[in-house]
Design a protein around this nucleic acid. Structure first.
Length: 267
DNA sequence: TCCTATGTTGTATG
DNA sequence: ACATACAACATAGG
């Protein structure tokens, strides 16, 4: 499920646990979501610690706890965070449970493309510190986008939008939404976009991020019917702007939806 | 049975 | 070294 806005929504779900002590930590230490992470150290440091704060950037979340602990969570394709009643018994897909007095904070992920990271220290760990500048930050400039597209000149623009090192937090549906709004065919080689088109792309990146955060990021509510979003998966779905039948094809290994009435291969 | 899935990463090739 | 394409990861649900 999770792209920028969904990640922000899931982050907030654990808010009831902030400022509260972690009494017990339950893990499936052999689960793939712990790949590259010392699950034992995580349990040792977080048991008895107080959960202090949380933040989300791109598709990454960080939860900070007393003892300079940094708990990182990436939801992958199917990860989610929930709050369960105290004493929750972990199910097969509940790979991390932070048991507190009044509740259990649960991370579950059946497909296990997600990831749990852990570090201690004053300085933020690399997986948090080295994320690309947010699309809604000042560092996300038209010039930076143009330079990036120039280097990926032969790659379809759809695939380029999924590259986290320049478009942090963008995933499959957001990329399609952005291209639809910018009226750009997803198969256009990144290097073929005109300066005007790059400007449009840049603007729609920001627009989709901010509006997705305002809707999905707050309440998980579906965006309105005026977006591509609610139509993209339905068979016989129609473009909300042109009324033409939407098309779905695989581009860059991902199913891509666009409106042929609006998005054409020539500039 | 077969297909798809809102993600990343390792590997092969140019 | 860099850009590009694609299989692999693991599981559920239609």
């Amino acid at each position: 499920m999770p792209e920028l806005a969904e990640v922000e929504y899931f982050r907030k779900r654990w808010d009831p646990g902030l400022g509260q002590r972690i009494r017990e930590v339950l893990v499936h230490p052999r689960a793939k979501v712990f790949r590259g992470t010392d699950a034992e150290a995580l349990v040792r440091h977080l048991t008895g610690a107080t959960l202090r704060s949380s933040a989300a950037a791109a598709k990454q979340m960080v939860f900070r706890a007393s003892g300079d602990a940094w708990l990182g969570i990436h939801l992958g394709m199917t990860g989610e965070l929930t709050v369960q009643p105290a004493g929750h018994v972990p199910g097969r897909h509940d790979h991390l449970v932070l048991a507190q007095d009044g509740r259990s904070l649960v991370f579950s992920d059946h497909r296990m493309f997600g990831r749990i990271q852990f570090a201690t220290g004053r300085e933020p760990p690399d997986w948090w510190a080295s994320l690309a500048p947010a699309i809604l930050s000042d560092a996300f400039t038209v010039e930076a986008v143009a330079a990036f597209l120039a280097r990926r000149a032969r790659t379809p623009i759809k695939a380029v939008l999924l590259m986290q090192e320049r478009f942090p937090g963008i995933g499959n549906w957001m990329a399609d939404e952005i291209l639809w709004r910018a009226a750009l065919h997803p198969r256009r080689p990144a290097g073929s976009l005109t300066p005007v088109e790059i400007k449009r792309l840049h603007r729609e990146c920001r627009w989709v991020c901010s509006h997705a955060l305002a809707t999905i990021g707050q309440t998980f509510a579906d965006p309105p019917k005026s977006w591509l979003f609610p139509h993209r998966w339905e068979d016989g779905g129609k473009c909300p702007r042109t009324g033409t039948l939407l098309v779905r094809e695989e581009i860059g290994g991902r199913t891509t939806c666009w409106s042929p009435g609006r998005q054409t291969l020539s500039p």
